[in-house]
Each structure stands twice: as C-alpha cells, then as structure tokens.
Design a protein around this nucleic acid. Structure first.
Lengths: 356, 356
DNA sequence: CTGTTAGCGCTTTCAT
DNA sequence: ATGAAAGCGCTAACAG
C-alpha cells in the first residue's frame, strides 16, 4: 500500500460499501454485526487516519466561538491572549470558524456580569473564558453546561465548574520561583520587599493569592520570612508613590530585592530608576511593554512569563480538536514559566513561537 | 456574505467560470486581460482565502521528506528534535507526507559523508538537515540547490549555503547568558571553571565556539576574565575524571561555579555530587535526561534549553507551509533560550508545548 | 441494514 | 481563452 488507505480501500477490503465503513467509523446509523466485524478487522490491519479537514468540509459545519475576556490594553497581558486566539483562528482558516469577542472591564464586577450575560444569550459552538470574578464565571459556566456548550478557560481555573480544559500557569510555583530568583541575585542577608499594586481586581484574586503563598513558602523554608517587608503602591497613579514609597525605603535601608506578584513591576522599576536606586533588584510577572522596558534598561532583573499568547492559541486549538476532530485532551494544562532576562528577551515574542 | 467566499462566488461576481478564477489565483494557464482584471477586482473586494487542505488533496500531491540528522540517543538532544519532527508529521496527517530518517554518527565524518550521499541519491520534495560537519553539509546543500530541492537546517546554520530557512538558538547569547547566570548565583569574588567535554565533534564545532565567545564576553565586560579556569573532562569515560578533576579542584579551591557549554553538564554534576562538593554551582545546556536529574537533585542550578523539539516541529511546518501552501517565512529563526530550574522544569516538556 | 448517489470546495482536463 | 465536467476523500440523504 503505497499511499494512505482511504475509506474506499477499506470498503473494498471488507467487502462492503464506503457508506458502511463511514457508519462503523463514527458509530452512527445501523450496521449489522457481520459488517461491523468485517470492517473492524480491516481497520485493525491498516492504519486508517481520516482526512479531518475533508471531513469537516463534507459535514458543512460552521463553528462559532465566543471569547469572553477582559479588555485588552495594548502591550499588556490580555492583548497577548487575544493575539494568540486570533493567530489560531487564522491557522484554522480552512475550517469555517468565526470568533466573536466580548470584553469586560476586569475592575468592574457589573461590567463582567453584563458581558457574561450577553455571551449567555448567544448560541455558540464553544466559548473561551478569561475568568476574573468567580461568581459571575460560575453563572456563565452553569449556563454553558446546561446548553451543553464546551468551554475552556485561559489564565486560570475556576473551582466548582467543569470546563473542557484550562490553560494557565501554576501560580504557586510562579511565586516560589520569583522568590528564588530574587534571593539568588541579592547579597546574603538582604531584606526583601513584596510589593502589591493597590488596584482592586487587578488580577483574578486567587492567582495573586497563590503566588503569594508560593513566594512566602520559599523564604519560610529558609527561615527568612522576617526579612520580608510589605509595600502597597499605586499602579493607577504613580505620582502617589513618590512620598509613600520614598518613606518606605527610608525606613527599610537593607532592602536589596523586590518582588511584584502582578504585571505592575514596571511602575516600581520606574520609581527606583528615577531615584537612583539601581542597587535594588526587581522580579516581576508578564512581558508587558513596561516590564520589557525595565528588563532592557536593567531596572528589572527577571520577568516571569506565562505565555499568554500560547494560552489563547491552545484554547482555540483544543476546542477545534474537540469539535471538529472529536479529539479530547487532558483538562489541566500548565504553561511553562519562562524566565526572561535582558539576554533572552528578544526571542520571547510569544507570537512568533506560534508560527512554529 | 455570511460565510467565507468560495471560488464559485468569486466567479459569479466576476462573471466568469470557476476555472478562470483558479487560473488567475495561481497564475497558471492563459487568461484574457479582461477576465483577469475582473477577477482581481472582485478579489480585492472580498477577502478570499483558499482552503489549503482541499487544494492539496485536489492536486493529488504527495510529499516526501528526508531527514538527515545525527543518531538519536534516548533522552538526548537529537531524539527531541526527532520527536518534534514526528509530531509535526502527525499534525499534518491530512496531507500525504512521508518522512524518511537518515541518521549518522555525529562523531564520525565518514558516517556523515556516506549518509548524506545516500540522501542525495533519493528524490525528495524537501530535506531537513541537522548539520555537524561543515564540508559534507555544503556538498549536500549544493546538490539540493542543483536539484531545486528546498532544505532547512535544525540546530545550526551553515555559512556558504542557502537553505530555505534554519531553526537554531543564538549560541553567542547562549554563552553570555550562561555566564551571567553562573555569576549571579555565586558569591562575589569566586573563581569559575569553564568545562569542556573532551569528545571531538560532540557538537557542531561552530556552536561551541560561539558559546565560548559569548561566555568570555560576559566576564571580560566585568574585568573578571582572570577568574576563569579551564578544565577538559571526559564525557565518554567518567571514570577517567576521578583523578583529573579531583586534582583540578584541589589546585583551584576558590571555584564556586562551573559552566559546561555542551549538554554534558550531568557528568560534572555527578562527579561533584559523589565528592560532596555541593558548594559548586553548575550551569549547562539542553534538557537531557542526566541534566534533568541534575536539576532535580540540585547538582545543576540552571539548564538552558534550545527547544530542540520545537526546532524539529518548526522545520517540518516551514516546509509544509512552503510546499503545500506556497507560503514563505523568514530565513533566520532563533528559538528562545529557556532558562530551566528545578521549579519550572516540570512544565518544559518541549513536546506537550507543541500540542498547543 | 446497506449500496448508491450527490455534494462539499478546489483543480484539471477537455472540448469549444 | 474559457466553460463544463469529472475527480480528490469524505459524508449524508435516499432508495430499497
């Protein structure tokens, strides 16, 4: 057999018609025991793999995706998720997919609620959700369960729901890793500051919490938890920090390292730079525009990247694999936590990766 | 227009037949000026994208790939490249691709030469090359140029040839990064050892050279080049190292960090572990089985990963995009240099990544 | 229950 | 030069 076996070949070998083979393959329609066995016998001998693109075109199917995620600010996290989604949709261009975006204000519960309600009103073949508010997500998830619409999460899992799968990073490990890195690049006996951006709902609260747990775990293991200071700063209005943060560092002269367990590291880096505190090393999260700048000018030592674009890409791919090709994948999918420095930064486009 | 426009739709709009549209789209056959303009006008208005899988099946094309790479040892670099290639072939299962592997002994020039000759004898639609010996690669590349067979490199570029593209990591940056990491995790004023595995041809020589340049560059920038010691050890026969390496560390008591600019870090880690020298931190290359072990038990601090599986995957994808879909991509493709620690290791399967 | 047939979108051949 | 028609592999509707 030079080329790949086709349904027609299998039919001939089994002494039945192509129609029957199709029925056996997909378990649809009625097939006599005898034919089924004959076909299955042949299938076991030849390694048949269907041409899935042909199959999807023959079925004349269209796929309507809804994407419910926070608003996308240029150069920030969710825009990268969105870019990954769009890339995947383009990659599956041969399949008739359309993709409707529903963005909500991640700092506004009511915005999330009404957006999710609009999503629930539509008819979708599948939904991608970027969860921020737990309760609203559960409502939407329940609705999708009722209507038997598959859905997947990006960025985080929401307990008490049953998505087809989710794409996220292990946040506790993320926090632990940040702690380890900041500890490694500072002198023995330093103090550390754990900075938290004041803005409420900046991230899915649970994610930040898990990161903090991992972060503290590292220092506790080493009996260094007393070297950790806390600082709450304003991401929305950096000018408010001048006094606040200035006071803080004056009172804590031994601080040599800082961690920001959100994507707002750039704000701190900027402050330190303006005040000539290049002795304080920072580690933060996500390759946002301002963090990239911080890496480049040395204000930030390491950035941990959760591959947002790949999360979006994978979400679409997982749904397509399931809807079109009937394939299932494991539910829990953790992205690598990329450690990005000034040196390897140029190669982490997170988008070119997906071209492969 | 609810659904995607088809050739038939375009034909109708332009007042010609589907056959003519196809001719215009692909510039094949003869088409009158008038029809061409009419069709192009419509094409500019509707955003036509062909269903490429359908197209490739209609053309009844088959693609035969040859893959000429070093022998694959389980758990080592080239096996991961191979896994990525196989994954991609499976992903493009709907296209009729076959893939023949030709493995050579990367330590044996004659093995490489005769293997490449066998590749040159075959008829291929495209070839993937993992170069080790420069001259033999050039011979093969020239032959492929003559027969107008597209080829791509994985692992490294070979100057003086013109592949369709290559997938590699920037080796100089890689060396620089290793230097930076080892410097960061060791106390101020340490000495460092740059270890080199004795085995000839262990890597494409040029790769190792570039890494060394990057490595030294880092220390030179900081005026620390005199803190670098050199050590040549045996990767093939670890037992030879007992005395050799033991002597070395006795004569150089201030060494606190070591770099191995090949994938053989595990051998050194093993030595240090057996001799209770957990104070010496190591950084090395590639997620081989033994390096993974070293990361896990703490003998190795960081491993830099060049994403071999993704290189293989991308190589196939690039060729398919070109052969089947007529798309071209940029020639130079640098993989990210992943910094792997004990913590993020579990998420760097490098294969699950490709599932996306 | 099952074989036959028409059709999916794209390409190619063959008359015209 | 160009339209009509057949074919690629797969599915679905329709007879029987």
């Amino acid at each position: 057999m030079a080329s790949k076996p086709r349904i027609k070949d299998i039919a001939a070998l089994a002494g039945v018609s192509p129609g029957t083979v199709d029925r056996v393959l997909h378990g649809r329609g009625k097939v006599s025991e005898a034919s089924r066995i004959a076909v299955e016998k042949v299938l076991n001998e030849v390694n048949y793999t269907p041409n899935l693109y042909l199959s999807s075109i023959s079925m004349r199917k269209r796929f309507r995706l809804a994407v419910a995620i926070p608003e996308c600010v240029a150069g920030e996290y969710w825009e990268q998720v969105r870019a990954g989604i769009l890339r995947a949709v383009r990659e599956y261009d041969s399949i008739d997919i359309t993709c409707d975006f529903f963005h909500y204000n991640q700092f506004d519960l009511f915005s999330c609620r009404s957006t999710f309600e609009r999503v629930a009103e539509g008819e979708w073949d599948a939904v991608i959700i970027g969860p921020t508010f737990k309760d609203e997500t559960i409502v939407l998830a329940n609705h999708l369960n009722d209507t038997r619409t598959p859905y997947v999460y990006v960025d985080s899992m929401v307990d008490g729901t049953s998505p087809m799968c989710f794409f996220s990073a292990d946040q506790q490990v993320c926090g632990y890793l940040i702690a380890k890195l900041i500890h490694q690049i500072t002198p023995e006996g330093s103090d550390y500051v754990l900075c938290q951006a004041k803005r409420v709902g900046d991230e899915s609260a649970n994610n930040t919490l898990m990161r903090k747990i991992g972060f503290m775990e590292f220092f506790r293991e080493r009996g260094l938890e007393n070297n950790i200071r806390r600082l709450i700063f304003s991401a929305a209005r950096p000018e408010d920090n001048e006094e606040l943060v200035g006071d803080f560092f004056e009172r804590n002269p031994d601080i040599k390292g800082g961690a920001i367990l959100s994507s707002r590291g750039g704000v701190m880096a900027d402050y330190l730079k303006r005040h000539g505190r290049s002795d304080i090393r920072l580690v933060t999260l996500d390759l946002t525009r301002s963090n990239i700048e911080g890496l480049r000018d040395g204000g930030i030592g390491f950035v941990i990247c959760q591959r947002p674009a790949q999360q979006g890409f994978s979400a679409v791919k997982a749904l397509m694999m399931n809807l079109v090709f009937g394939q299932t994948m494991k539910r829990d999918n953790y992205m690598p936590l990329d450690i990005v420095t000034e040196e390897n930064l140029p190669y982490y486009n997170d988008l070119t990766e997906l071209t492969e």
